[in-house]
Design a binder for these strands. Structure first.
Length: 426
RNA sequence: GGAGGUGUCGCCUAGUCCGGUCUAUGGCGCCGCACUGCUAAUGCGGUUUGGGUUUAUCGCCCAUCGAGGGUUCAAAUCCCUCCACCUCCGCCA
């Protein structure tokens, strides 16, 4: 949820953000109007409520005929107060639903437009020239099957399409990758966390995954619980309704969890292999900090991702995602996309978002700031970023394959995986 | 799954049976001031959170006793639903 004070004081900033996202900017005026209505109805209610309370005290003291007269007055007043309260509640609800419909205000510099309007910030590494090496690269599934590392068929048998088994060298590769990511995070001062993967409605909504992503989310109606598509959700909810201590700097977590996504509306897309699946594992960084530190923290998260990608040694590029492709909570998002040889294009491996105060406002996570007028509670900023996922195996397998179908484990991963080369078993 | 108990403004706690004097008691902690070689002790004052009004303050007002409904002129207090925690029973990878 955006800050209504910002919208009130500088509506043009919110309008510009909405425009860049390709969203309705008229909602800004609707909010201003709803806010007026809310204040008017609230004032009316509060005045009458104050009168009701003071009359109530007289009733308590009065006797006999006087009491009866007061009761008559106050009964009438009671209904009036209820009506005004209902009006004020309705105005508040209307305001809230308008505010919830507005995405986070983008940060200056974020490119306008949609999915294809990203800006490439940096390209790192050079794709291998397989033609010059004299062989046709195999895709990750063909490699994975020959290594007996990936089994899609049995995944489908047990659970359905887009499910899979990782086994043997495949399981070792993933476990090594994830444990290396956690180790790097710990070295950088992050606290490792294993999170719940089922969360309640408030947490899911607060993290921003119910409005736009409802179709994407597995829901268990019997318990009204939601399977999370990333540990970001649980980590965002970790400090709900708390005042956290940021006096000695940002709080940095590295969450490990299995992630569940319905992938509704992606029928026919990436149906082969483990690029787009219903279940995968991920190490996710999550930071709470003061709003003024958020952009620096964002750069830090991106640097963590770059360091991690350097360890798996694949060519990749960094893009600054366009406003229309940010999703509601993010004010800016950088994706790192690795080169996938058999697709001849870059595919997302990491994504780091600066959500500023958007998530924390919904989840009521604040910190104490000392000001001249004394300590004040202020909404914290949150950021998240990927440090490793199952999908990374795709880039590792394809970029490090050899003509005989074996795969060289990148140097930086060898110790964690415990293998130098993955060898075909058939 | 069943039975019982608990939930009060940082922590502990009074109040709930029997609705109005609760503008929620007291202690601890914390903050400020005073006193004092320093510290401690002592004394005085302050100390939930959100919102409205005014916005330069002070102030005044409303909401908030786990959450949400209800009864009532009036709810921390009575009723209902839900949530969390504790004890016991049952079941169980």
């Amino acid at each position: 949820m955006i800050d209504i004070k910002l919208l009130r004081d500088r509506p043009e900033v919110v309008r510009a953000s909405q425009r860049a996202r390709g969203e309705d900017e008229g909602v800004v005026d609707a909010v201003l109007e709803a806010e007026q209505r809310r204040r008017r109805s609230l004032t009316a209610f509060e005045q009458l409520r104050a009168e009701q309370k003071s009359l109530g005290k007289e009733v308590a003291k009065a006797q006999g005929e006087e009491k009866q007269a007061l009761l008559a007055r106050t009964k009438e007043l009671s209904q009036h107060v209820k009506d005004l309260q209902a009006e004020a509640d309705a105005a508040q609800a209307e305001l809230d639903s308008l505010l919830l419909s507005i995405g986070n205000v983008i940060i200056d510099g974020v490119p306008s437009g949609g999915e294809d309007d990203y800006v490439v910030l940096e390209e790192i590494g050079t794709p291998r020239d397989f033609a010059a090496e004299g062989f046709e690269p195999k895709d990750h599934l063909e490699l994975g099957e020959a290594l007996d590392a990936i089994d899609m068929g049995r995944g489908a048998k047990v659970a359905g399409a887009r499910f899979y088994f990782l086994k043997g060298q495949g399981a070792r590769l993933e476990m090594g990758l994830l444990s290396l990511a956690v180790r790097k995070a710990i070295e950088a001062g992050f606290t490792p966390v294993i999170t719940p993967t089922l969360v309640n409605r408030r947490t899911m909504a607060g993290a921003g995954f119910i409005d736009a992503h409802l179709e994407e989310v597995y829901h268990l109606p019997a318990d009204d619980l939601f399977l999370t598509g990333t540990s970001e959700v649980a980590l965002a909810g970790l400090h709900t309704d708390e005042v956290i201590d940021l006096s000695s700097g940002p709080i940095r977590y590295a969450g490990q969890s299995t992630c569940y996504r319905r992938e509704a509306g992606s029928y026919g897309k990436d149906t082969r292999g483990i690029i787009r699946v219903h279940q995968f594992n991920k190490i996710e960084m999550f930071v709470y900090c003061r709003p003024e530190d958020a952009e620096a923290e964002h750069d830090r998260l991106l640097q963590m991702e770059k360091d991690m990608l350097a360890l798996i040694d694949v060519p990749y590029r960094i893009i600054d995602t366009a406003a229309g492709d940010l999703g509601g909570p993010a004010a800016r998002k950088f994706d790192c996309e690795a080169w996938v040889p058999t697709q001849g294009r870059y595919r997302e491996l990491t994504s780091t978002s600066n959500c500023t105060t958007f998530q924390a406002r919904r989840l009521n996570t604040r910190f104490k700031r000392d000001t001249e007028g004394g300590p004040r509670n202020e909404v914290a900023a949150t950021l998240n970023g990927t440090l490793a996922t199952t999908r990374w195996l795709v880039a590792i397998l394809e970029n490090h394959q050899q003509a005989d179908g074996s795969v060289v484990v990148p140097e930086g991963l060898r110790e964690a995986v415990g293998l130098d080369v993955l060898t075909p078993v058939r």
